[in-house]
Design a binder for these strands. Structure first.
Lengths: 117, 117
DNA sequence: CCAACCTTGACACGACCGTGGTAAGGTCGG
DNA sequence: CCGACCTTACCACGGTCGTGTCAAGGTTGG
């Protein structure tokens, strides 16, 4: 069966089986399937799952944020529209408080604030 | 008083006063203040608020998505970390179902799905 | 001075995120 | 064939997003 089943993959990646299905739904890591429908995680998927976990933890980023970045990367029209809107702030750069959106973003999980304390 | 108060700005931008305060919290549009603390929206802010509304509506993007993109733009370490993780998918590009994350993203507000129907 | 407007803070509410669980049923390998 | 594992589909729950509303108090401008 060339690869790990979902519970085995959960064991070696640190995710729960539930989360592996959820992550697949988000489109970020999609394993192959057997003829009967079982998910089969290969080495590439396992590596991806591990680095994904690291990414989310070390930057305090949400799964949905990564999914949105994927959407951005795949839709250049959207990407340039947002970047253009953001760059218009540069009109008055001295007014931008860099701690502002930062605090806003961090409120999502206040882990960073607690860590900093 | 050189500029519009919050309710006047709400009137000309289509946002509610409540949302203007919320948007300011997110760091996306921050008006000047009078000595007494009143928000004063100038022409630049009004324009920004209008284009922001257009951006969100025409691409079905959330306020938090734009805020996150701002964080990305301001933190190149984070940006390259995510982009690198995403680009690892390109290893097996034929396996990526482009409708996957799309449906995931769209479930946020099913407006696009309904529009498409 | 005063009416009209603004401020912050709080409560509320539906929708969605991330996560766990459980139930009913199908697949795997020996 | 059968026990162990997997599938999807649901319910639940605390937390966040986007939004409205209300209360208590300060500002503005004539």
């Amino acid at each position: 069966m060339q690869g790990l089943t979902i519970n085995e993959a959960a064991g070696t990646t640190g995710w729960s089986a539930r989360m592996l299905r959820y992550i697949e739904q988000s489109g970020l890591v999609s394993p192959e399937r057997t003829a009967g429908g079982y998910r089969i995680y290969g080495a590439a998927e396992l590596q991806r799952l591990r680095t994904l976990k690291e990414l989310l933890e070390s930057f305090d980023v949400a799964l949905s944020d990564v999914a949105f970045t994927a959407r951005l990367a795949a839709d250049p029209r959207l990407q340039s529209a947002i970047e253009q809107w953001l760059s218009a702030t540069a009109e008055r750069p001295e007014d931008v408080d860099p701690g502002d959106w930062l605090r806003f973003e961090q409120r999502k999980h206040e882990r960073l604030l607690l860590d900093a304390a």
